[in-house]
Design a protein around this nucleic acid. Structure first.
Lengths: 211, 211
DNA sequence: CGTGTTATTGAGTTGTATCAATCCCAGTGG
DNA sequence: CCACTGGGATTGATACAACTCAATAACACG
């Protein structure tokens, strides 16, 4: 399946789906109420995303840029591989990594300031899609300020102000709407309040989804 | 392993552990910084909890009341069952349920008001440890106001004020510090902003952990 | 080079945190 | 059985971080 940017992935209704992002970038969105959305995860090429089909809130997978997707109805897939230890183990490791990231996200949203969340987001994105440029890291973010806000539990205005503060602090530089240069990576980690480096669950490999 | 109330479960350092709560109740705590903790999950008898051993923040399992625990070093367990599809499938389903709950929690913390979070918490706890009493549901909460606050990303004072508001609204009644009677369950669901009933991932069975 | 969308910046408001007193229970010992 | 006691809970007053509303600026696209 190929989708243009800003599209909603057509998934089977009423049941969970496992989506493989062959290429592109997407966001998994939970709908809390009208005009109140929470971005559960950002996903990039190679990721496997579990999209819940039932529960107290509705989930939707939005493309950020053009995407190639492969969609599996989860229940059927789960039944078909019930006696294939290799695939089960792979799914388990993916799910475990996604759980770790989701917990980190809950901690970030629940107990961190806007400044700490912003720095944590940039460090996380650097681990996912950052390209080293000497001492600095180059990021080309496919998501809007609104998406970042919906991911961190903040408003677009607060995101924008945090970008401005980080620019003033000379920890980042921005080029256009989407490009960000992380000039002081260790400073950002410190600002994020991280105790240690990000582990394997936060890198690109074996990612069921990203937070 | 048997532990009294308010104890920290002794787990192997530097590696992840899978803990089976044979009996009792516990909380999984993430340490953001001094005096800033996030309760990642509450767990009750029968639960399997994954306690991450590495990552950007430190995790600890605290008992709330007396507990019997069985601790497995996760890496060793994961290696030992690598070709056992039944156990892998069980772990996968547990992990999947935990991920669903953690996502709901992230949504709750990121995009809901104190009132909605409090109602959501009570509905969630009712699904876990509630006892029906005619139209009402009886809850005996093993955790303190501080624990609830650390779980919902709020302070003890805000939790206390929300309890008072719910009492004034005649949606709950309280007896002593720990007992809560949910007098208007559907009203609480509505207040929580839930679109549908809680699904199987939120009941007691097959719970890797609770949010 | 318009034109519409997204981002930035400013001013003012608000929900929750913080600080500070009580108050109330659950143990403990008399 | 009941006073004592200490930690948790409640309530009130105030502060502040982030939200909301509003106006301008910057970018991307045709």
């Amino acid at each position: 399946m190929r989708l243009g940017p800003g599209k909603i992935a057509p998934l089977p209704r009423g049941q969970s789906a496992l989506v493989h992002i062959v290429s592109g970038a997407a966001k998994l969105v939970a709908h809390a109420a009208a005009e109140r959305e929470q971005v559960t995860a950002f996903n990039f090429s190679g990721d496997l995303v579990m999209v819940p089909g039932s529960g107290p809130h509705a989930y939707v997978l939005h493309t950020l840029i053009e995407c190639e997707l492969t969609v599996f109805p989860y229940k059927a897939l789960r039944g078909a591989v019930a006696d294939d230890p290799a695939i089960l183990a792979r799914l388990l490791d993916n799910c475990d990594a996604a759980l770790s990231r989701c917990r980190e996200k809950a901690l970030m949203i629940g107990r961190k300031t806007a400044s700490e969340r912003m720095a944590g987001f940039l460090v996380m994105m650097a681990a996912r899609i950052g390209e080293p440029r000497g001492d600095a890291v180059l990021l080309d973010l496919p998501m809007s300020r609104r998406d970042i806000g919906d991911s961190l539990g903040l408003t677009i205005e607060t995101i924008s102000r945090q970008f401005s503060l980080l620019r003033e602090a000379r920890q980042i530089a921005t080029e256009g709407r989407s490009k960000v240069v992380l000039l002081d990576f260790s400073g950002l980690q410190e600002r994020a309040g991280h105790l240690a480096e990000l582990g394997p669950a936060f890198s690109s490999k074996f990612a069921l989804d990203q937070c």
